[in-house]
Simulated assay, not measured.
Amino acid sequence: MSVRVGVITFPGTLDDVDAARAARYAEAEAVPLWHGDPDLKGVDAVIVPGGFSYGDYLRCGAIARFAPVMDSVIEAAGKGMPVLGICNGFQILCEAGLLPGALIRNSGLHFVCKDQWLKVENNTTAWSSRYELGAEILVPLKSGEGGYQATQSTVDELEGEGRVVFRYVGDNPNGSRDGIAGVTSANGRVVGLMPHPEHAIDALTGPTDDGLGMFLSLMDEVVNA
């Protein structure tokens, strides 16, 4: 079965090429999707990659959320299509209401760029099933507005329902609530995280190949559906 993964490009997107490369590493077909085109081209899943969509004007992801392509993504996600938001993509998914919470300026008010250890807290989502529960993975983190925040009731709900997918190990690099690095929708189909798994798919070019597991998880989900 050929799995088609759409990768969105907004003005200011930086990591669409890397996300497409990660999809190809997992033996999926990477399908480019343009922000101004609502057509998802029959893809099986969508990646909303990192960067600075629309220059991060207003606030990160606030304008991208209203791009024509996102209307189609929201509709498809409502029907169960797997969607992954990475960094700015995570911000966009939160702005679009597909994931709860918001991302704000890092607690130290500095851009953070480092290889970051994450703990896998949920391995039942469409994007995390290849990992052992409790495994620690090393992937790059690069963001200035990566502090995950939500109301206490929302955090309690996420924690109580096991919807925290990844958590920072060691020092909290950006002041996120409860060290949260990534969360999932209630059905486990939509996942967002601040660190960049697409930059850790090959030990030759990244700190590890730990990030590849997210894209292989998607392949399992689609093929076995």
Rank of each mutant, 00 (worst) to 15 (best):
M81Q: 05
G147P: 06
A200L: 07
A22E: 07
V31I: 15
V120F: 06
D56S: 03
L133E: 07
G162P: 02
C113Q: 11
G162K: 12
L158D: 11
P38I: 11
R130S: 14
P38K: 05
E136S: 10
E221P: 03
D16G: 13
R65A: 14
D44I: 11
A30F: 03
C60K: 03
T208W: 08
T208P: 04
T124E: 13
R21F: 10
A203L: 02
I104M: 00
F215D: 10
A23W: 11
T208K: 01
V165A: 05
A20T: 01
A200K: 04
R24Q: 14
L138D: 07
D209M: 05
R21A: 14
N174V: 02
S72V: 06
A19I: 05
G160C: 11
I74T: 14
G134R: 11
E136M: 14
D16K: 01
A45F: 06
S185E: 02
V3P: 01
E75V: 09
A126L: 03
G146N: 03
S107F: 09
R167W: 07
V190L: 09
V191G: 04
M214G: 03
P32S: 09
I86R: 04
A45E: 05
E29H: 12
G108T: 15
G182V: 07
F111C: 09
N224R: 14
T154N: 01
Y25S: 05
R4Y: 09
N106Q: 00
D115N: 15
H110V: 13
G97R: 03
C113H: 12
